[in-house]
Design a binder for these strands. Structure first.
Length: 639
RNA sequence: GCCAGCAUAGCUCAGUUGGCCAGAGCAGCUGAUUUGUAAUCAGCGGGUCGGGGGUUCGAAUCCCUCUGCUGGCUCCA
């Protein structure tokens, strides 16, 4: 007998060799029906795998992240089975579960798959699911595993086997399909009731662009048809929030084929929004001792040779600009920091003036591969809310904490709650990607780790995500479709001051090297606003929105009164316009609702006579009537 | 850049297997209507079917190529 302990602390005895499924069944049939996998001593196992010794056990169902991931991983196998049966000879790469579903990378040889094949594959998957085939786990020796895939001619699985140790290799088989797999899997395919293949994409084998590109098929499955329907509706809803769609509808920005891909053009309303956002940060920075500076959009190639950017990115960038007579070479500015280093270095600096903080909304241009461009979130020209702080090593931690405070202030002001703070460090396996000494890197990485700990910030750490000159603290926020974007960033840099030979004279009358902090709370105005649009579905915070009200006269007779109100509101810095079209009030309301103008002031004969306005809130409806001054104080309360 | 897909009026979309002057709704313009909380009515204008090349008696439709866009991959100072 073995002792099985449960999450609630209970301990029960079972025969050795019992399975989680047996245990679940001993508790209730309902539980047994829902169990997809189970944690056994902290490891996720098949529910059907025999347990031989005392264990702490926890069941996973569709309501657990682990249960879903087991379900989707098994679904990937089911899809592979369907594909193998429809297209014999297909070779298989890897097929994991992901955040929302699963994918499988396959090599179909000369056959080109396209999304028009999805229906056929889905139908086959459903047919195979109905057979309720069990997922059968078996231990296989490395030699047998190699023999199996050699026989099958699957070089991808053979390559995966190379990295595995004999004795740790398992196969899973369901129906006619056998795969090299660590598991775990759900009990049988019958649990998969709803199937949808979503997308097809090329994906390089093992993520290496020099290797063969496989076909990746993304899909999602559910235990109930209804859940699939709901999920697809959710995707439709998310599409409505897409900043590219809303940006066009609300006339915030545009792109032009003639101007060029990835070069956003800001329309008047988008500019109003962006300017307000910039002004907010500019004022905040003045309060915190930043000095605004302005630098040119181009700089000599030598500048970026000094900084290291040319060596690191030059070959894959926009080509240099040449002067026609002198033959000088200039680059479109890809970063503001080299310019700011020059500002620091233009005169001798004393420790007494440190820290100095140069701030600039600097527009930079970077070549991005055409396939990477994406609305406002991945572009070739964008404006960073950049600043560089030059300080003594002693001041570094305080300065970092000040920047962190400013960044959190910005994030909170815009109402982001679900952000991730990511510490981006060097890739220890690949240190030649970075400039600067081991010592400088260690100091910079330590500074970030210590400061975030001191601030009590919850962070995740990613290796290999650092900039080439220093580690970063990045703030990541998800867009409507769950894609994660880096917005704000704070970077500690010991290396550029060295490259630019920046100095200050200390109290000891000796020259010292300053430390530099690169920081951008928004990151880029373009990306920030893109994500903001999706975050608030185009309904911007009142202080930020381009137009705060629309006055809707019921007939032309109320236009003079409308003008009086507009005048009075503008005195109080409340911005908006009069819809003076000769249209029905129903039409005016509808159009204003669709433009997501927060407040509608409806005035008819009654209001004009009594000097009041009928207030309607976007998305919520009639709020009743009030005098103009009452509206002004009501409105100001909301700012 | 790579893989797959898409590109018809300002926008959203029709346009059967290649075949009469390429259609609709919304938007726009003109006129009428002066309206009480999400679309008043009528009339009119608008497209070299993304650009270029080819196949064909004939191309929005088939082929090639370029550009742009979508979803991924790689990349992201």
């Amino acid at each position: 007998m073995i002792k099985i302990s449960f999450p609630d602390g209970a301990v029960r005895e079972y025969e050795s060799g019992t399975t989680s499924m047996d245990i679940a069944r001993s508790i209730s049939e309902g539980l047994a029906r829902n169990v997809l996998s189970a944690s056994v001593n902290g490891e996720v196992w098949d529910a059907s795998r025999p347990i031989q010794e005392d264990a702490a056990i926890k069941f996973y169902t569709w309501n657990d992240k682990e249960g879903k991931s087991t379900f989707w991983h098994s679904s990937a196998h089911l899809m592979a089975e369907a594909i193998e049966s429809l297209y014999p000879g297909t070779k298989f790469g890897i097929g994991p579960s992901i955040e929302n579903g699963f994918y499988y990378d396959i090599d179909t040889g000369d056959r080109v798959l396209s999304s028009s094949d999805f229906a056929k594959i889905e139908a086959k998957m459903k047919e195979l699911a109905k057979q309720k085939n069990e997922y059968v786990r078996s231990d296989v020796s490395k030699a047998d595993a190699v023999a199996y895939f050699e026989e099958k001619g699957d070089e991808y699985k053979l390559e995966l086997l190379e990295g595995l140790d004999d004795g740790s290799i398992t196969f899973y088989q369901q129906g006619a399909f056998t795969d090299l797999c660590r598991g775990p899997h759900i009990p049988d395919t019958g649990k998969i009731k709803a199937v949808k293949l979503l997308a097809l994409a090329g994906a390089y084998w093992r993520g290496d662009e020099n290797r063969k590109q496989l076909t990746r098929i993304y899909g999602v499955t559910f235990p109930k048809q209804k859940e699939l329907t709901e999920y697809l509706e959710l995707l439709e809803e998310a599409k409505k929030r897409d900043h590219r769609k809303l940006g066009a509808e609300l006339e915030l920005f545009m792109f032009s084929e003639k101007v060029g891909a990835g070069l956003p053009i800001w329309l008047p309303k988008g500019t109003a929004l962006r300017t307000r956002l910039e002004d907010f940060l500019k004022q905040e920075q003045i309060k915190r001792g930043y000095q605004p500076v302005i630098t040119p959009h181009i700089g000599k190639k030598e500048l970026y040779e000094t900084s290291g950017h040319w060596e690191k990115y030059g070959e894959d960038s926009f080509r240099p600009i040449h002067t026609p007579k002198e033959g000088e070479e200039f680059l479109l500015k890809p970063m503001n920091c080299p310019h700011h280093c020059e500002i620091y270095g233009h005169k001798p600096r004393s420790y007494k003036e440190l820290p100095v903080r140069f701030a600039e909304f600097g527009t930079v241009y970077r070549y991005e591969q055409s396939g990477e461009l994406h609305g406002l979130t991945r572009v070739r020209g964008f404006t960073q809310d950049d600043a560089h702080i030059f300080c003594t090593p002693d001041q570094l931690k305080d300065e970092f904490l000040n920047v962190l405070d400013l960044t959190m202030h910005v994030i909170k002001k815009l109402g982001y709650e679900n952000f991730t703070a990511q510490i981006s460090l060097r890739d220890p396996e690949n240190t030649e990607k970075y400039i600067g000494s081991e010592e400088n890197w260690n100091r910079a990485e330590q500074a970030i780790i210590e400061a975030t700990q001191e601030a009590g910030l919850e962070t995740v750490t990613e290796l290999g995500e650092a900039a080439f000159y220093g580690p970063k603290l990045d703030f990541m926020i998800k867009d409507a479709l769950g894609r994660r974007w880096q917005l704000g960033t704070i970077q500690v840099d010991y290396n550029l001051p060295e490259r630019f030979e920046l100095e200050y004279v200390g109290s000891d009358n000796q020259t010292h090297r300053p430390v530099m902090i690169h920081r951008a709370p928004f990151g880029s105005m373009e990306r920030f606003i893109g994500v903001l649009i999706e975050h608030c579905a185009g309904k911007f915070p009142l202080w930020l929105t381009p137009e705060q009200f629309a006055i809707l006269p019921i007939s032309d007779n109320q236009i003079p009164f409308a003008k009086e109100i507009e005048q009075e509101l503008s005195v109080h810095d409340i911005r908006g316009y009069i819809d003076d079209r000769t249209e029905s009030i129903g039409r005016k309301i509808r159009d204003t609702e669709l433009k997501k103008i927060p407040y509608m002031l409806i005035i008819g004969e009654k209001e004009a006579e009594s000097g009041k306005v009928s207030v309607r809130k976007q998305g919520e409806g009639d709020q009743g009537t009030m005098s103009v001054s009452e509206f002004i104080s009501y409105f100001k309360e909301l700012l």
